[in-house]
């Protein structure tokens, strides 16, 4: 065929003859509307199926019941907040009165010990996962870096990593609980024991993806870059800081993202099993409670867990995009 592809195209004009919606807006509109359709179909199917399932705790919750419970849980939180405010206001009033009668009176404010609401449990879980994650990263990144830099160290440590990597959080939990009880015996502890237990369990389980990815990142620096460093005779510490770590950054962050996701999953399981405060405990309590609303409330927790997991991942992705020099790779 003599006609080439280019020749069939009309010549390009330097002006635009029709106004067009920019391509990226079109693209995001389409992807949003598709997401919306997907969610809608899912909700309809869910409601339809739920209506037909009866459990010993009543009908299986559909979206409608879930929305109802979201409102309930939120107003419970509001009421609890109000109670708390009232509690302190009452104390202050009483103290003021006591001081008025006797200026030397020994007045104090007692802490509020109300029942933790759903929102409180979310906060606890978020704190715990952050704390556990940070501990894990302080161990994982240096450990991975050392493994990546030194073949002998890697060979020594690798079997241990491989052995502990597949261990479920639930297996660690009793050991960690006992260890924390035995060793964490401060007079006026900064953190609750249950908090420390959950955080350490999270840390133990979310260590591995970061260790492994850091090891790979540090040991797979481009050979040419290492040669450049040798030619300009960079001293060891500059070599590490200027060549090795930056080139490992993308993989380190990939590992950190996986770690955070693992940590969040592990945390819920640990809280359920250990009855440590948090979303896991909320689910377990509701299950034990066994009221007709329980299943819908658990469903709310499930959705919230998913949503928080998603937000955490998006946050890590944003950080990863920001620090990664490798702008060509598509991060998702």
């Amino acid at each position: 065929m003599s006609n080439s592809v280019e020749s069939t195209e009309p010549p390009r004009k330097w002006y635009r003859d029709t106004w067009q919606v920019p391509a990226f807006i079109k693209r995001s509109l389409r992807s949003w509307s598709l997401s919306f359709v997907g969610i809608l179909v899912f909700a309809l199917l869910w409601q339809g199926t739920a209506n037909n399932i009866d459990t010993s705790l009543g009908q299986f919750p559909g979206p409608v019941q879930v929305v109802e419970q979201i409102q309930n849980l939120y107003s419970e939180y509001g009421r609890e907040q109000q109670r708390r405010v009232d509690f302190f206001a009452r104390q202050e009033a009483r103290n003021a009165q006591m001081l008025a009668e006797d200026p030397n009176a020994d007045v104090r404010i007692r802490p509020y010990t109300g029942r933790p609401t759903f929102v409180d449990q979310i906060q606890t879980s978020l704190w715990t996962v952050s704390f556990g994650f940070v501990i894990a990263m302080f161990v994982a990144i240096p450990l991975g870096a050392v493994c990546g830099l030194s073949e002998p160290v890697y060979n020594a440590i690798n079997p241990i990593i491989q052995l502990f990597k597949p261990v479920s959080p639930l297996a660690w939990l009793p050991l960690v609980t006992m260890l924390v009880s035995a060793l964490y015996v401060a007079e006026d502890p900064l953190f609750e024991k249950s908090f420390v237990t959950s955080a350490i369990t999270v840390a133990l389980c979310c260590l591995w993806p970061t260790v492994i990815n850091t090891t790979v990142g540090v040991s797979s620096v481009d050979k040419d870059l290492i040669n450049v460093s040798r030619v300009i005779r960079l001293p060891a510490h500059t070599h590490l800081l200027k060549i090795v770590l930056p080139s490992a950054i993308p993989l380190i962050f990939t590992g950190m993202r996986l770690s955070l996701a693992t940590g969040w999953m592990v945390l819920i399981a640990a809280e359920m099993l250990a009855q440590n405060p948090g979303l896991g405990k909320f689910i377990w309590d509701e299950f034990q409670n066994g009221s007709s609303d329980s299943l819908s409330r658990i469903m709310v927790a499930v959705l919230v867990i998913g949503f928080i997991g998603l937000i955490l991942d998006k946050l890590m992705l944003a950080v990863q995009r920001y620090v990664s020099w490798d702008k060509q790779t598509v991060l998702r």
Binding site: D222, D224, L225, N227, V228, V231, I232, R233, K242, P246
Partner: peptide, 28 residues
């Protein structure tokens, strides 16, 4: 041993991708 006396231009440029052009030269 390697030395800046014998500078090497590599086939695939071997620039540090996280540094600007200026910083790449500056490092050396």
């Amino acid at each position: 041993s390697p030395s800046p006396d014998r500078a090497v231009v590599f086939q695939n440029h071997a620039l540090l991708p996280w540094l600007s052009v200026y910083d790449n030269v500056e490092l050396a």
